[in-house]
Design a protein around this nucleic acid. Structure first.
Lengths: 213, 213
DNA sequence: ATGTTATTGTACTGATCGGTCAATTTTGTC
DNA sequence: GACAAAATTGACCGATCAGTACAATAACAT
């Protein structure tokens, strides 16, 4: 019993340090690119030495892969949840998805940078897996769009132009958005949704579709 | 006279080799990222040794910067040309710009990759210059958009959402576009324009604006 | 205290790579 | 062929860095 409590405590401490290291790596990777960041940099950033990093992680690649996994789990999970909701019509669902993704991008700019810039630093196997994740993510958006087309609410366009356009526009938000600007993350994302969905919707209704949280 | 001819010839030969090296660098940089490419790689790729590269270029940074300049000159020049045309209404002009840019992205995927991924490898001064170039590029699109708003043909939105959306969507085309697909570059770009402009235009007209070449 | 395990520091290795340099080969000129 | 300029080679230097080995210390149980 006492044994378990102690182990539990240790595990929590370990998890905490791992988290700390991962966060440090994340920040530096995003800022300078993986290859420009040494393990020493990551460690020094926390007042540690290199050995500590190697005590908690096997190698540099594991650090990177861990980050990719984090991102995937967080983003895909939320998106999937939205996808499975039955109370939303296609237009509202797609809008909610674009809104969510835009906000995610803006709230996790470091993640987005790494996710789309440093893919090439992964191993072939990891890249293959990542490719499948991205495919899956795309297909969620695609399905909602196609459902909308079928129901006659969306114009019919090449699906990848639509999906790519949404993802591309959202990803790019982080490039020009500044926290010091007049607009909040939510407002920016909302305007972005209006731009993207406005081009899709059929009919003269001028209002932007809204989805409940 | 003979002197001049000879010099001319020599200059042309030099320019040719420089071009070759730059192309090699471009391809490899885009594929693997600058830091993952050694000068040896670039040289070997052409059957040369490292020294040849250093005979024609000062250092690795110059190679990279030369590439950035190339891209800027090519893209900005074309866009400026379009901007200065007086025979196009805002909607047609903005559509033509998005169309042009999308095609540029797809025809020069290596360029686009480097331009938006490896910025951080430039010196601070170069980054500053690049930032100004990008600002200028954005402002061209922005002005056309704002003109359209003023004339009542575009919905009023935050300009950076519109400009960023266009650039972001175009940039992302290269990520999913495959030459083996059923659509040509021009068709993809056209559909992309329809998506983006469709969300901007006021009124019930369903047709996509067209611009003369 | 004593032994044990978890954690961290120090010093090192081996490899890579940007950049330099002197020597050599090639090219073109007279 | 002799000479000079251009082009190319190969060997080398110094720095950086991922990863390892092992010693040193901290933490904790008994």
């Amino acid at each position: 019993m006492a044994r378990t409590v102690r182990e539990e405590l240790k595990a929590r401490k370990q998890a905490y340090v791992q988290e700390e290291i991962l966060n440090s790596a994340e920040r530096l990777f995003a800022e300078r690119g993986i290859r420009a960041v040494s393990i020493d940099d990551i460690a020094n950033n926390l007042g540690y030495t290199k050995s500590v990093v190697y005590y908690y992680f096997k190698n540099k690649n594991q650090l990177l892969w861990e980050i990719f996994q984090r991102i995937h789990v967080a983003w895909d999970g939320e998106m999937e949840e939205l996808y499975n909701r039955t109370d939303l019509a296609p237009a509202d669902k797609l809008a909610a998805m674009a809104r969510l993704y835009g906000i995610n991008v803006l709230q996790n700019r470091a993640w987005t940078t790494i996710y789309f810039r440093d893919e090439g630093e992964l191993t072939k196997e990891q890249q293959k897996l990542l490719y499948e994740w991205k495919q899956h993510f795309d297909s969620i958006l695609k399905n909602v769009y196609l459902e909308g087309v079928e129901k006659g609410v969306f114009k019919s366009m090449p699906p990848y132009v639509v999906v790519g356009g949404i993802i591309g526009a959202c990803n790019f938000l982080r490039v020009w958005f500044r926290d010091t600007g007049k607009m909040t993350i939510e407002e920016v994302s909302e305007a972005n949704v209006a731009l993207l969905l406005g081009g899709l919707l059929i009919g003269r209704s001028r209002k932007t579709p809204k989805a409940g949280a």
